[in-house]
Simulated assay, not measured.
Amino acid sequence: MSYSALNQYRIMWVLVFFDLPTETKKQRKEASKFRKKLIDDGFAMFQFSIYLRNCPSRENADVHIKRVKSILPEHGHIGVLKITDKQFGMMELFISQQPAAKPEVVQQLQLF
């Protein structure tokens, strides 16, 4: 695989933002099930209602976005954002006004 296939414009990040109702036991169960399915698909928690996943290509990112769409809960607000690794790298993170490190990229095996 050439360097161009793995450059910062080809590698993608998929971010899933959600605000799900949790007032009833059934709603809490649905919200928990949605989060578990995200984790099962390789997403990691970035903040409580923001999960992200690194993908080696736009095509791979589209596969994971399709999976997210297939598990949408009945109620709540869900957003999905696909950005390049270059764009993700420009993000500034802070914890209590102190600069923070970006999440580590999990190396994933890519099969052809």
Rank of each mutant, 00 (worst) to 15 (best):
Met1Phe: 09
Tyr3Asp: 14
Tyr3Pro: 05
Ser4Glu: 14
Ser4Arg: 15
Ser4Asp: 11
Ser4Asn: 15
Ala5Lys: 15
Leu6His: 08
Leu6Tyr: 14
Asn7Ile: 12
Gln8Ile: 11
Gln8Ser: 15
Tyr9Gln: 06
Tyr9Lys: 15
Arg10Glu: 12
Arg10Thr: 07
Trp13Pro: 00
Trp13Leu: 01
Val14Asn: 02
Leu15Phe: 09
Val16Leu: 07
Val16Lys: 02
Phe17Ile: 03
Phe17Gln: 07
Phe18Asn: 00
Phe18Trp: 02
Phe18Ile: 02
Leu20Glu: 00
Pro21Asn: 07
Glu23Lys: 15
Thr24Gly: 04
Lys25Asp: 10
Lys25Ala: 13
Gln27Val: 09
Lys29Phe: 11
Lys29Leu: 08
Ala31Tyr: 05
Ala31Ile: 00
Ser32Glu: 05
Phe34Ser: 02
Arg35His: 06
Lys36Ser: 04
Lys36Gly: 08
Lys37Tyr: 00
Leu38Gly: 06
Leu38Phe: 02
Ile39Phe: 03
Asp40Gly: 05
Asp40Cys: 04
Gly42Met: 04
Gly42Ile: 02
Gly42Ser: 05
Phe43Val: 00
Ala44Cys: 08
Met45Asp: 10
Phe46Thr: 03
Phe46Pro: 00
Phe46Asn: 03
Phe48Met: 07
Phe48Pro: 04
Phe48Thr: 02
Phe48Asp: 07
Phe48Ala: 01
Ser49Asn: 07
Ser49Met: 05
Ser49Val: 06
Ile50Ala: 03
Ile50Tyr: 02
Tyr51Gln: 04
Tyr51Thr: 07
Tyr51Ser: 04
Leu52Arg: 02
Asn54Ile: 08
Asn54Glu: 04
Asn54His: 13
Pro56Thr: 01
Pro56Trp: 15
Arg58Gly: 03
Arg58Met: 04
Arg58Phe: 04
Asn60His: 12
Asn60Leu: 08
Asp62Cys: 03
Asp62Ile: 03
Asp62Met: 06
Val63Thr: 11
Ile65Val: 15
Ile65His: 08
Ile65Leu: 01
Val68Phe: 01
Lys69Arg: 10
Lys69Gly: 01
Pro73Lys: 01
Pro73Met: 06
Pro73Phe: 14
His77Tyr: 10
Ile78Pro: 00
Ile78Val: 15
Ile78Cys: 10
Gly79Tyr: 02
Val80Pro: 00
Val80Cys: 08
Val80Trp: 00
Leu81Ala: 12
Lys82Pro: 02
Lys82Gln: 14
Lys82Thr: 13
Thr84Pro: 04
Asp85Leu: 09
Asp85His: 07
Gly89Ile: 11
Met91Phe: 09
Glu92Thr: 11
Glu92Gln: 14
Glu92Pro: 03
Leu93Arg: 14
Leu93His: 08
Leu93Ser: 09
Phe94Arg: 09
Phe94Glu: 07
Ile95Cys: 07
Ile95Phe: 01
Ile95Val: 10
Gln98Lys: 15
Gln98Val: 10
Gln98Thr: 11
Pro99Gln: 13
Pro99Arg: 13
Ala100Phe: 06
Ala100Trp: 01
Ala100Ser: 15
Ala101Arg: 14
Ala101Leu: 04
Lys102Val: 05
Glu104Thr: 10
Glu104Gln: 13
Glu104Phe: 01
Val105Leu: 03
Val105Lys: 10
Val106Asn: 13
Gln107Tyr: 13
Gln107Asn: 13
Gln107Cys: 06
Gln108Ala: 12
Leu109Ser: 04
Leu109Ala: 10
Gln110Lys: 09
Leu111Asp: 03
Leu111Pro: 02
Phe112Leu: 12
